[in-house]
């Protein structure tokens, strides 16, 4: 059976990269005693996939994984066993069984909601003040890093919500395999508008992953399992 689980990557371990998080979750599954399913072949591995790789340096409040189990398990038992087996920095919040034929969670991600905690009150105030201007434009440029080059792109169509209060900026931005706007790109664009030469330090927390319903509106990804 397949089980979808929502988990948190705490701020303390935000610098742990995606591959290391994957391995840590796999080891957690091995510790849990749950009936984990392995792939066939010469180097069997645990059947698990993550809806979206979370960047090194970012924390995640509601990250999503999809695990295949060899035998049916209730979500309650799954959560209990996993939370005994995981470090507190990587704890599971909820779990739900999935249809075996359901598409991979990864293919359903459309956008993500972020919190950007800006270091320095002055910088935060300047950035927050630049938000209305940013939203008022049809074109906002930022540099996008691809595998081979650094290129300019327009991120305005990728920003679906943007507001700020105190030291925090809150944003909903496109996240698909084809295109996405990363928090660093948003910060860069806001800095330019605010006249900030050096981008301030920030701590990024991905609050949730979003999919879309029939009408095209965003809904929490876990609701689509």
């Amino acid at each position: 059976m397949r089980m979808m689980a929502v988990f948190e990557k705490s701020e303390r371990i935000r610098h742990i990269g995606h591959l290391d998080i994957q391995r840590s979750v796999q080891r957690g599954l091995r510790r849990s005693g749950l009936p984990v399913a392995y792939s066939g072949g010469f180097h069997p591995h645990i059947l698990i996939s993550f809806a979206s790789a979370l960047a090194t340096g970012a924390a995640g409040k509601r990250e999503i994984m999809d695990v295949t189990l060899a035998e049916p398990v209730t979500p309650e038992l799954f959560l209990e066993k996993m939370n005994q087996a995981m470090p507190p920095e990587l704890h599971l919040i909820e779990a739900a069984p999935m249809d075996d034929k359901a598409p991979a969670m990864m293919s359903l991600v459309r956008a993500a909601e972020y919190d950007l905690a800006i270091d320095g009150e002055e910088a935060a105030a300047m950035l927050t003040a630049a938000i209305p201007a940013a939203l008022g434009q049809t074109e906002l440029t930022a540099m996008r890093k691809t595998k081979t080059k650094l290129e300019e792109c327009n991120i305005r169509p990728l920003i679906h919500a943007l507001d700020g209060a105190g030291n925090h900026i809150h944003a909903v931005m496109t996240l698909t395999e084809r295109e996405s706007c990363k928090p660093g790109m948003l910060l860069e664009a806001l800095c330019r508008l605010a006249g900030l030469e050096n981008p301030p330090r920030m701590v990024v927390t991905r609050l949730r992953l979003l999919g879309s319903d029939e009408t095209g509106g965003f809904i929490p990804l876990e609701k689509m399992a």
Binding site: H15, P87, P88, D119
Partner: peptide, 21 residues
Amino acid sequence: MERALDAVQKAPRYTGGEMNT
């Protein structure tokens, strides 16, 4: 320390919070 972590290579060396600690 949290700030310093953002400024170094290999921050996971210093984060702690590992399983069984």
